[in-house]
Nucleic acid binder design. Sequence first.
DNA 1: TGATCCGTCGGGAAAAACCTGACTTTGGCT
DNA 2: AGCCAAAGTCAGGTTTTTCCCGACGGATCA
Lengths: 224, 224
Amino acid sequence: MCPIRITLTDDHPLVLAGMKALLQDVEDIEIVGEATDGQTALDVIQQTTPDIAILDISLPGVSGLEVARRLAAQMPQVRLLALTVHEDHAYVQPMLQAGARGYLLKRSAADELERAVRAIAGGGLYLDPAIAEKALPSSHGAHSSSGTPATSELTPRESEVLRLIAQGFSNKEIANQLSISIKTVETYKARAVEKLGLFTRADIVRYGVALGWLGHPAKSADQA
Amino acid sequence: MCPIRITLTDDHPLVLAGMKALLQDVEDIEIVGEATDGQTALDVIQQTTPDIAILDISLPGVSGLEVARRLAAQMPQVRLLALTVHEDHAYVQPMLQAGARGYLLKRSAADELERAVRAIAGGGLYLDPAIAEKALPSSHGAHSSSGTPATSELTPRESEVLRLIAQGFSNKEIANQLSISIKTVETYKARAVEKLGLFTRADIVRYGVALGWLGHPAKSADQA
DNA sequence: TGATCCGTCGGGAAAAACCTGACTTTGGCT
DNA sequence: AGCCAAAGTCAGGTTTTTCCCGACGGATCA
């Protein structure tokens, strides 16, 4: 039997190296590629066509979610294992809808990683126990045709504004950054919080934290 | 020669296991303890008295900074290597003042970890190149006598208010939470931003992120 | 060929934040 | 004992921001 071929993606080289060290000791697992950002991950995965692509969701540049969506469209045979610190439901669902076959938390036990890999390699689906509880109950049928079911389907503008708000920018500052009117910013914000059921700025910040918009000091400076 | 004895602390078991895997392959390095929270870290370190304690700064419960300060007071012979995602200057300085002998970023290359360990074990001080630049220029002479030179000497109240602001709460919400007048909250905020040289809310959020006030979705719920 | 969604704005009312100034208590210093 | 600085507390009044309601053109889709 040929080994399970895996690519790893995490924006922290140290964490990446750690996971690699963890996995490469295992007999029938082979690390065939690594990346520390979304674009590179896409490239590496396309070049190596691994059995499983493990990727952190919070990536600089192209986000993990974006990577997942593109892979689902371009290389559906590659199975995705999402690996992240975020256990918020709002984040799990989109990831699974984007085609992820597994969702593991960084706070998970180390041996869960191998377990998840084997489960997915065997064609299964593996969710961390902690999130499995949350993810399953509210589940839905299976409509991946038109695109977006319920929550979290913000328009790009809405999402952008919400992120900037979470980062502490005022409507005026956002208006300047995006070169639009304050009024427009207010509209996006209003529509976004309406869709997501958020009320206070603190809600928005929490949402942003869950989505990985914050907590990555070094990165940022993306949209222009 | 006896090996370098090390304890590891990181709140993500997976990351912890990864670093362990990275380090334990090295000849003269021995992992003598692990922890995933600040209190446990303190216990483990006190029990094992390692040569070097590697600890992530953003920890649930007792923060890494707090751990560093207590260790500096109780076990100065244990050398600390701070390991974190935060490369903000505002975070490096307090950590070094708290006695850390090294500061490494998770975005650092993997071999830097071993390098840092050896440097510190040899009695040296190791800063990640990326932060060394920032840390050194603005530096200071060597006044560790009275305590706090310039920044970050917020009163408890100021710090508390600033944290809540970073989390997105309005002055009014904070006033309610702390059972004080809005006006008082405004005063603390004003004094805090004055001391820290912050200007916009976004500045405050960034400061909070650097201090680990945000970015830990699952955790929180501390002060009452 | 309407309905709907997205991006874009304005006016005016309401809320929040900001600036200036002030009072009290605690503690150290002379 | 008197002095003074720092920390905690608050108010009045002005400025800024946000919030609510409404609107319009373009694209898309049935």
